[in-house]
Design a protein around this nucleic acid. Structure first.
Length: 644
DNA sequence: GTAGGGTTAG
């Protein structure tokens, strides 16, 4: 009997020899059989394999658990994402007067981070200092991670009032007495009045200044410390600082690992820096990270943002195992590059491989349905979203509002919008744009004003939406007021789209000279297409002189713009200047030879039918011509003069 | 002990 006891004891003291959960369970069976009492050691073993139910069963057999029993249970709760239970366990342990050690704090801090328990996290930090563990590298790294995530939320004041977090922040502060011992970190970024005078960039800097302070005080820093700080900088939009950290890492003789690469890749993607992307890709291959899913997914995103979606696809194919994120990255890569059909077919392929869509998959694929105006598929997805309770997700709801509006069902768009608990800038904009494109200008303007009243600051896109509404409804004064408000009140520089809307609005109202002057006042990025609505307006108002001036401007920017010449020729015809019209058509015919003809297409019963101007090759060409004749006949009957 | 993918644009 003694020899078995000794063997069990030896095994439990050298847990590296135990390689699987089933071996751990076999040892547990032997412990019970031999009436041994190695509960804490067994708990550590179960915790090593993240076996929560087994750990709990063991823990509950203990009358007065020691630190050695609490430690593995807290770790096990955290590893299994039971963060609230992890903190409750920690509080119980402290109430029993048990002192935590360096193994406990990383798990506890991670739980605080995930539950967004900022105040409680600070008091845990106080406790770390009180127990003299602030120089432990694992604990320090957990603190870095906690502050870089929680202070960001706190500084930007988007904390929600989750009941779990409030419970901890308000009541269970058994450690709160030590809160005062670390005032520098706790004060920064939490006081809204202190932040109100700051610029957005300064507000972003606040949390990272505190994190940097924690970093500087760490006597020992490892790759994880640098990676955590790099991620913090990236997530706080401080890209240069993130880059500097990679350099500092090199100075400290630490090599970037897969975490470093995947943490930094979003910066490369955002800046569309294809050369940096390739450099990182090469480094990844040389250092054996070419199979790391996080690195590959980051690179898929980089190449997609650089319009190199085929490279993204090659990487996607190189993955031996594709998880939900890799599918989603590739689908998003297609959708970003306008490959909507390919995105949808990947989505179907993902389902056929039994990878279940998560909320992010839905918000990536719905825009493809919106662009392709495939309402039935969009509705199927909406059904899935409701069945899986994803419908309280802002990203999904906004994309649904847009999808229904684009597919012509403004009522359902409004229904989704009204069903949302909160509205953010994007959801307001999607709804305003929906109303604008359906001709409900007053509703769009009302929604815009309501958004402003709810303290949601409109951005450039929201102004495009409301100006579109004004333009469609010919509301000149309102449009001018919004345009000026955007510049003077919100300090937003008008973009191409805003000028295009305004030129269209002024042109339709007959204020052609004003529209001309407005476009001339555009500081830069003038394109031919910003002039085209004005040219159309010149035609409606039969202003030949201005039309000629406009075409001159267009030809400077794009000498092959066929649309402009067609319009000019029509304008000449409409005022009886047929010779001029013929001249323009002659120039046009030369230009047309150089241009690829435009193509339109329609999908019927899963088959795509394409049409090119002058093309008579469709198998049902005669039938189509007959149908058109009937339609033109009906149009004539109703008194509408067809405008050729 | 550290990591990824998403919504709005005449």
């Amino acid at each position: 009997m003694d020899s078995i006891q000794t063997t069990i004891k030896t095994l439990l003291k050298t847990p590296t020899q135990i390689k699987s959960p089933s071996q751990a369970k076999q040892i547990h069976a032997q412990v019970i059989k031999n009436h041994s009492t190695f509960t804490s050691d067994l708990l550590s073993l179960y915790s090593k394999f993240n076996l929560l139910p087994e750990s709990l069963t063991l823990f509950n057999t203990l009358q007065s658990p020691s630190i050695h029993a609490f430690k593995p249970l807290i770790k096990c709760y955290t590893s299994n994402s039971y963060f609230f239970e992890s903190l409750k366990c920690f509080v119980t342990m402290r109430r029993m007067g048990i002192h935590p050690d360096h193994n406990v704090f990383p798990s506890v801090l991670k739980s605080c981070t995930n539950l967004m328990c900022f105040k409680f996290g600070e008091s845990v930090h106080g406790s770390v200092i009180r127990f003299g563990l602030e120089f432990d590298v694992f604990t320090g790294n957990a603190l870095l991670s906690m502050y870089s995530k929680l202070q960001r939320f706190s500084a930007l004041q988007v904390f929600d009032e989750s009941p779990e977090r409030t419970a901890f922040d308000q009541s269970e502060n058994v450690l709160h007495h030590s809160y005062k011992s670390y005032p520098e970190v706790s004060q920064n970024g939490r006081n809204p009045s202190a932040l109100s005078h700051m610029s957005d960039q300064d507000r972003r800097n606040v949390p990272m200044q505190s994190v940097r302070k924690v970093f500087e005080t760490m006597p020992e820093k490892d790759v994880v410390s640098y990676n955590t700080l790099i991620l913090g900088y990236v997530q706080n939009n401080m890209c240069n600082e993130a880059m500097m950290m990679i350099r500092e890492m090199g100075d400290a003789k630490l090599k970037p690992d897969a975490f470093t690469l995947s943490n930094f890749l979003p910066v490369v993607a955002e800046y569309m820096d294809v050369w940096k992307g390739k450099e990182i890709h090469g480094y990844g291959i040389r250092h054996g990270f070419e199979r790391n899913g996080f690195v590959i997914n980051g690179l898929i995103d980089v190449y997609a943002n650089c319009n190199m979606v085929e490279d993204s696809y090659q990487l996607f194919c190189s993955l031996s195992e594709r998880d939900c994120v890799s599918w989603c990255s590739m689908i998003a890569a297609c959708v970003k590059n306008g490959l909507f059909d390919e995105g949808l077919s990947l989505f179907r392929q993902m389902l056929s491989e039994n990878v279940k869509p998560v909320p992010i998959s839905c918000s990536s694929i719905i825009p493809a349905c919106a662009h392709l105006t495939t309402l039935p598929l969009g509705q199927q997805l909406h059904g899935y979203i409701i069945r899986h309770c994803f419908d309280d997700n802002m990203f999904i709801s906004s994309s649904l509002v847009n999808m229904y509006a684009k597919c012509g069902n403004i009522k359902l768009a409004k229904c989704v919008f009204d069903g949302m608990k909160h509205h953010d800038l994007v959801s307001w904009t999607a709804m305003i744009m929906g109303c604008a494109s359906h001709g409900y200008a007053n509703d769009a303007i009302f929604l815009f004003k309501q958004m402003e009243m709810e303290d949601v600051r409109p951005n450039s896109v929201a102004f495009v939406a409301v100006l579109t509404a004004c333009s469609h409804a010919g509301m000149v004064d309102e449009g001018l007021t919004f345009f000026n408000r955007m510049v003077t009140h919100y300090d937003i520089a008008p973009d191409f789209e805003h000028y295009a809307c305004m030129a269209d609005l002024l042109g339709r109202a007959g204020k052609l000279e004003d529209a001309f002057d407005l476009i001339c006042s555009m500081p830069e990025n003038k394109t031919a297409s910003v002039w085209l609505p004005l040219l159309a307006a010149c035609r409606v108002h039969k202003n030949v002189d201005l039309a000629e001036k406009v075409v001159m401007q267009i030809s400077k920017l794009d000498s092959d713009n066929v649309g402009a010449y067609v319009l000019l020729s029509n304008i000449y015809s409409s005022v009886g200047r047929y010779k001029d019209a013929a001249k323009v058509r002659h120039i046009l015919s030369k230009k047309m030879n150089k241009k690829e003809p435009a193509c339109s297409w329609i999908r019927i019963g899963g088959k795509v039918h394409a049409f090119i101007a002058g093309d008579e090759s469709h198998s049902n060409y005669d039938g189509i011509v007959n149908a058109l004749d009937i339609l033109f006949g009906q149009i004539d009957k109703e008194g509408y003069v067809v405008d050729h």
